Computed example of a mutant assay.
Amino acid sequence: MQVKQGAALLDIKALEEKGQFEGYASTFGGEPDSYGDIIAPGAFAESLKAHANRNSMPKMFWQHDAREPIGKWLGASEDSKGLLVKGQLNMGVQRAREAYELLKAGDIDGLSIGYRIRGYEVDEEKNTWTLTKLDLHEVSIVSIGANESATIEAVKSGRLIHEVSEKLRAGVRPSERELDAWFKGILDCSNSQAERAVRVLLKGQGEPDKAADGLALLRALAG
């Protein structure tokens, strides 16, 4: 599953001694962020409702790294400004204690969301996306300088993979380059595996029937 990372937002409102804090993980409307995205009011509503029904919350990671959970989110809700989150750092975890000290000193104050796009509108003239429906997977504490380039690449990759999935669902044949990126992102294939999959499923290795069957399989995988 490809999860897109949002631009870091410098808006942590409060930090308590025991590691509880709150802040805005995303804001609505306004100018596009540095990746050309605008998040519409209500974009998180269905995802937050689904989390509530499952009695779950988005994960709290350090720098979008699933190997480094550093606490848990106690609450997440939309208001007129954006997505307000309240969290508890796990002070028994070294990385969480480090995050707390960095937050307290003001050395970092960024929150960034990890999500999957479910609905969007595109303004091709302005090259902006208005994201209308998002599945919220995680909210990370981030230091912008260390994370910015990786986030930009993740955003570019996430958009391409989303566009290829939409093409497949619509029965449109993607290019070889698009399919190569799709295999790597959706199915976590290596470079050689992705190249071979494109050759077999899209080209059918010279056999039209196999190519047609392969494209049908890709559409099924895209949902």
Results as ranks from 00 to 15, higher is better:
L187Y: 05
L201V: 10
E124K: 10
D135E: 14
A216D: 12
G110W: 00
K49R: 12
S157L: 12
D11L: 09
D180M: 07
S157F: 08
F61I: 02
E16T: 00
G87N: 04
K156L: 13
Q88E: 09
E153C: 05
V85A: 04
R219G: 15
R196H: 12
V164A: 03
Q63K: 12
F21W: 02
T128V: 15
L217R: 12
V142Y: 04
L136Q: 03
V200G: 01
R159G: 10
L221I: 15
V198H: 10
E101C: 04
E153D: 11
S190D: 01
D213K: 14
T132A: 06
S165Q: 14
S140K: 09
M57F: 05
D33K: 04
S175C: 06
T151W: 02
K184R: 15
A146C: 01
K59G: 07
S34W: 04
G23V: 01
E17F: 00
K167N: 10
L89T: 06
G30R: 02
L74I: 13
L179G: 06
I161K: 07
A212K: 14
R67D: 09
P208M: 05
L179N: 07
L168N: 04
F183D: 06
G36H: 08
G82P: 03
Q88S: 05
S34A: 11
E101D: 11
G92E: 12
W182G: 07
D79I: 06
E121Q: 12
A220L: 12
G19H: 05
T130E: 11
G110M: 01
T130L: 11
I12V: 14
N53V: 08
S149N: 11
N127L: 10
Q193L: 01
V172Q: 14
P174D: 02
A154Q: 11
R173L: 10
A194Q: 01
E17M: 02
M91E: 03
V200E: 12
K133N: 14
A150T: 13
G171L: 03
G75N: 12
A181M: 13
A14M: 09
N191A: 13
L48H: 05
S165K: 11
